[in-house]
Nucleic acid binder design. Structure first.
Lengths: 349, 349
DNA sequence: CTGTTAGCGCATTCAT
DNA sequence: ATGAATGCGCTAACAG
């Protein structure tokens, strides 16, 4: 079941069979017909490894993420794979598990498998190996981190836009004490979200009470813990923005445990808009980061270079926007019961 | 940066370099030393495609799933990949999107990339291509569907065990009207869960009211719809088992919308124990299906054949067990308010 | 339009 | 213990 057998059966040379398969040059219709029949009859398909070896083109793209069980990634992966497949690329997916040692092995594997391009959608880094990729001319696209260079592109998420919309929304609702649960501050993207938030606060002249910012870990438990801390403040926030949806889920949980209600007592805004945030109790107002599109853009960034449109990487931008659901409402603590504790007492809990 | 350059630098033949890399036969320590130095100095690593071509071994395993954004799969994928990586296999992950046409393309890609084994963790099928795999001697492992044959293994989930435990639990709590929201009945695994449930009902002599079974779709919206239907019954169930956790999430949502409470008014049991089910309101009692382990077993099933331990496929079993959290409690509707409507009214809603 | 030829990078004989 | 030679399946360059 190789190209020789097909050639023999179709009474042509292997070169002609190759031409048919690749459409690389014109073949007489009659001959082509015969070859195609032989291919079908023998159920032949080419050996990709041999093709790669001789052509130098693997038709493989690498996609490096942190952890597929983090709900941020599946849609990104899908977006990337779908469009890669449509363009006849196979994708090798690797997880760093947030570990830079493992990141190194991910890149190494890309090198070994001769990936033609690599999308690095995580913040773990290994300068040396990435240099190695770059040196071999492999196009790379980063998310948020990374500078645009030769064959290196970057997708920049506009966190500020969505956060701006969220703070606008909250202020319009009358909130003045707005808290923020950040992600791990070791992450650049988490720091960006946090400083965007601070920026907004300044614009509304709300920037005095900086104790309303607590660090979480982008997971549910971290959000819960952080929210507990916020609730213990003498003057707790009436609304809280979170650095991602899982954090918001945790915050929701803490608030329920404290026998307070969302949004009546506290408004909550998430970030990312993962699918499940439509289904929390109450449905979560959140900032949508279109992850399927993110995946598509990552592919496009690579593909543009691979097609040879340009040698230079490009800077891509992806917008974020507020999606209003039911976890936010007007701040209406009654005068005389300004604090959350009495709100809970009022409700007899 | 190929084997020749290494050979030249180490002043040996390519064969010797190959021997070092593969440990295929003894080499004089001194020579070996020199070769290793050359390898390091040149930052050399072998071309996997060339190796595959000449050795016939790709060190690639295929993993076919339905949809990575279905929360059932990420952990399975992780389990499979982790152990595959440990054994120096790369994995090609493909999504069928629940579409059998696409399933065909998945298998085709496995064939083209010369996967040494394929784990088919979905129920879409393409007999012909799978025959093709089988004919080429590629080991296969199925989940639930598929019979054990030469080089074909099967992992059988013991749905009955977990469901049994759940019904026991509910009955011990005093429930007598137990409902069930199934998955799409076109799925064999969904039918299995449903019939296990019916079996249990019989054992408890509760099998008369078969209207307490409604079909869902294994997604949140389906669970919600199904639960609404259950709630409209004159004699609604006091407890409901669901075919998976997303269905349970939907049921929770419907119950909240109806201003009823879980577990006071209705107990809910999920299936799968996806991570988020710990964080629902209230935390979901569910039947745990250990998906990381499932992934590991799938790899082992393939690996056992690849190692040549045996030519025959094997039947694997994976257990499911109840995890009690807070969405189940004793059935304690007051006498005189036997129905849910009055329960809601009682609470002033 | 089609066939012949020469490798792609490597593992594996078969010699020595 | 090591080297020379062969070919895995295919594409590309060159001839015709």
């Amino acid at each position: 079941m190789n190209i020789k057998q097909v050639a023999k059966k179709a009474r042509v040379s292997t070169a002609t069979v190759s031409r048919i398969i690749n459409g690389s040059s014109a073949v007489r219709p009659k001959t082509a017909q015969r070859v195609r029949q032989a291919i079908r009859a023998l159920n032949y398909y080419p050996n990709t490894h041999a093709r790669t070896l001789v052509s130098g083109r693997s038709r493989i793209l690498g996609l490096i993420i942190s952890d597929i069980s983090n709900p941020f990634f599946p849609e990104l992966v899908k977006g990337f794979e779908d469009v890669a497949l449509q363009n006849n690329y196979e994708v090798i997916l690797t997880n760093t598990n947030y570990d830079s040692t493992r990141m190194a092995s991910c890149v190494q594997r890309m090198l070994e498998r001769k990936a033609e391009g690599v999308a690095i959608m995580t913040s773990e880094m290994n300068r040396q190996l990435i240099e190695e990729l770059s040196r071999r001319g492999v196009p790379i696209v980063f998310l948020d981190v990374g500078s645009v260079r030769n064959r290196i592109s970057n997708i920049c998420v506009d966190y500020a836009q969505g956060i701006h919309e969220a703070v606008d929304h909250l202020c319009a609702l009358g909130h003045r004490r707005i808290g923020f649960i950040s992600g791990p501050l070791s992450l650049k993207s988490a720091r960006t979200r946090r400083s965007s938030f601070l920026e907004c606060l300044k614009q509304y002249d709300l920037a005095k009470e900086d104790t309303l910012i607590v660090e979480g870990n982008h997971k549910i438990d971290g959000g819960e813990l952080a929210m507990y801390r916020l609730l213990q403040l003498k003057r707790a926030p009436t609304a809280v923005l979170t650095s991602n949806d899982l954090t918001a889920f945790g915050a929701l949980r803490a608030i329920h445990h404290a026998r307070l209600r969302v949004p009546e007592d506290i408004s909550i805004v998430g970030f990312d808009d993962i699918e499940l945030s439509q289904f929390t109790q109450p449905p979560l107002t959140t900032i949508r980061l279109p992850r399927t599109e993110l995946g598509r853009i990552a592919f496009d960034a690579l593909f543009r270079i691979l097609r040879g449109d340009s040698q230079k990487g490009a800077a891509y931008r992806i917008e974020t926007h507020l999606v209003v659901r039911s976890s936010t409402s007007a701040a209406y603590l009654l005068p005389g019961s300004q604090d959350l504790e009495s709100a809970a007492v009022r409700r007899g809990s």
